[in-house]
Design a protein around this nucleic acid. Structure first.
Lengths: 233, 233
DNA sequence: GAAGCTACCAAGCACGTGCTTGGTTCGCAA
DNA sequence: TTGCGAACCAAGCACGTGCTTGGTAGCTTC
């Protein structure tokens, strides 16, 4: 089961214990790229910014600020100050504030997609794959895996319709993973598309109430609860 | 069941078929107030603006604009123009733009609460009551019953923390209805609070994808689907 | 070592925005 | 008639904001 990312990456001979993105275990066949490989490849393709570059730091900082204060209440001066440059210099890297938001959303999407693809590949049964998806999306929102992930939901309306369309194409490749998992899942889910939308809303809304630290309910348990609701054993 | 309400009618001796808000049927005991009565009472208490007053029109118009364009992208000039006055005149009614948002949220909450209370009272079994709640919240988002309801979700972050706290108190009285319904529901829902939060997210998210007009999936069917997921028969 | 490019600075412009201020109209009550 | 307050107008102030412009340090390349 290969997922989304077409991969020209030839070998992954590095051989550490990262989970691989096609679930191809056993047998002598070539293994799939790891998460690091996937991300590195995206960088090589120019889809993701070079890590530690000013551009990447701007996007990460901006995503964090947008998530925290909202797009409208975040100024380009805030973003610039966050990475230690002046506000005017931002426009050497981006042509407008909105482009910053769009690019941040795109990078965040690619990042989350890579993580989820790998997690799904590392799971055996369809139900475990669904659990992995839920877990990944929750982790993206609440963990440190994909900082700024929430802007995809929170600031969607701050994007022009053209930008929305662009991000949507990437977003669709993320949703494609969910679709395949649902398709493989036989059971009571007679309408996978609807289920996905309900799950998506339920998960996104956790942003408003779930506090991972010091709560009785862990992120792990929350995943299981959501799985139990949408795919009863 | 009539919904949108102006009503000077103090008692409901007119005897139409509005549902009543305490489920008190049979016997000769005093009947509960109708939706109209509930709203009229709120007006009398000063919690809701006098219908057709400039203040009420400003709030309705503002709620609509906030829902459509977002709080930050809506100007006080937009709102004023919507009701046919000049921007400066707004500040005779409200002390700040944020107060407009807060008041709009409060009125919307009270409105939705009245509708849901009546709908729950008109339902017999706990499961039917849950269905009514789901239906009401969906109707508030997509129908014309409570125009601007979505701002409660969409523009929550545009409110200062003090304003959030004020709205939250009202919001809690709305959630109280859900809580009671869940409490009466015996079954597989071992964690009602969690279930409510998941449902809330799922329903709120429909704002992003559900289009009532001309779709195969009606609002009625959507309610049933959500009920089936969260409270399997 | 000249040329050229990238990344950034320093300063500020243009404009939209929330809100203020002083004044006017009009209904209502004594 | 007079007084008064609610509702609104007309004009504009103050300021934050996105973005522009002209310039410079430093690195690379031939």
């Amino acid at each position: 089961m290969t997922l989304i990312v077409d991969t020209t990456s030839e070998n992954s001979a590095s051989g550490h214990s990262e989970s691989r993105a096609d679930g191809n275990y056993g047998g002598g066949r070539p293994v799939a790229p790891t998460v690091s490989d996937l991300l590195a490849e995206l960088v090589a393709e120019g889809l993701l910014s070079e890590p530690d570059s000013t551009r990447a730091r701007l996007l990460t900082c901006a995503a964090g600020l947008f998530e925290q204060k909202g797009f409208a209440r975040t100024t380009v001066r805030d973003i610039a100050a966050g990475v230690g440059i002046l506000s005017g210099s931002i426009f050497h890297h981006f042509s407008s504030k909105e482009e910053i938001l769009r690019c941040a959303m795109e990078e965040v999407t690619l990042h989350a997609r890579a993580l989820m693809a790998a997690a799904v590949a590392a799971s055996d049964t369809p139900r475990e794959q669904l659990r992995a998806c839920i877990r990944c999306e929750l982790e993206a929102i609440h963990g440190e895996a994909v900082p700024g992930f929430s802007i995809l939901v929170l600031e969607w309306r701050s994007l022009s319709s053209e930008s929305q369309a662009r991000v949507l194409r990437l977003r669709d490749s993320y949703e494609e993973i969910w679709r395949k998992v649902f398709a493989a899942l036989d059971g009571p889910l007679d309408d996978p598309a609807l289920s996905r939308r309900l799950i998506q809303g339920a998960i996104a809304h956790t942003h408003n109430w779930f506090k991972p630290e010091g709560r009785a309910l862990s992120l792990e348990k929350l995943s299981d609860r959501i799985l139990a609701v949408f795919a009863p054993a």
